[in-house]
Computed example of a mutant assay.
Amino acid sequence: MDAYSSPMFVLIASGITLLSLVVLLLLILLCHRIHKHRLGYNPTGNTDVAIDLDKLPSNVAYHSTGAHLNPKLECLEFPRNDIIYIKDLGQGAFGRVFQAKAPGLVAGEEFTLVAVKMLKDDASEDLQDDFEKEACLLAEFDHPNIVKLLGVCAIGRPMCLLFEYMGKGDLNEYLRKCSSTCYVPRNTDELFKELPKENQLSHVDLLNIALQIASGMVYLSERKFVHRDLATRNCLINDQMIVKIADFGLSQKIYLQVALQFFNSIYSNYFF
Score class of each variant (00 low, 15 high):
A100V: 13
K101P: 04
K117S: 08
C136P: 00
M118K: 12
V60D: 03
A135L: 00
P79T: 14
D88Y: 06
N81A: 13
I86N: 03
K133Q: 14
Y85I: 06
K87A: 14
K87D: 10
L127P: 03
R80Q: 11
N70Y: 08
E125H: 05
G95E: 00
Y85G: 05
V49G: 00
V147D: 03
S124P: 02
L76A: 11
D52G: 07
K87P: 01
M118V: 13
D54E: 15
L53V: 02
K133I: 00
A102T: 12
Q99R: 14
F111E: 01
L69E: 11
A50P: 00
F98H: 15
K117W: 10
D88K: 12
N81L: 09
F94D: 01
A100F: 08
D142H: 09
D88F: 04
V116Q: 05
H63P: 00
E77C: 02
I83R: 05
D52C: 08
Y62M: 11
F94R: 03
N70C: 06
L119F: 13
R96T: 05
K72S: 11
K87I: 12
V60A: 07
N81F: 12
E134L: 00
V106W: 03
G66T: 04
L137V: 09
A100C: 04
L89R: 03
I83D: 06
F78A: 00
I86D: 03
F141Y: 07
K117R: 14
A93W: 10
G90K: 09
L56C: 11
F94N: 02
P103S: 06
P79V: 13
A102Q: 10
I86E: 08
V106Y: 03
I83A: 06
S58K: 04
A102C: 15
H68Y: 13
I146F: 09
Q91G: 02
L73S: 01
E74A: 14
E77N: 09
V147C: 11
I51E: 02
C75L: 09
N59L: 10
L69F: 03
F111I: 12
E74C: 09
F111K: 06
I146D: 12
L137P: 02
Q91E: 11
F78G: 00
I86M: 12
F131M: 06
A61F: 13
D130I: 06
E77S: 05
K133N: 15
V60C: 00
G66W: 10
V106Q: 11
A100P: 04
A123P: 10
E110S: 14
F78P: 01
N145T: 10
E134P: 06
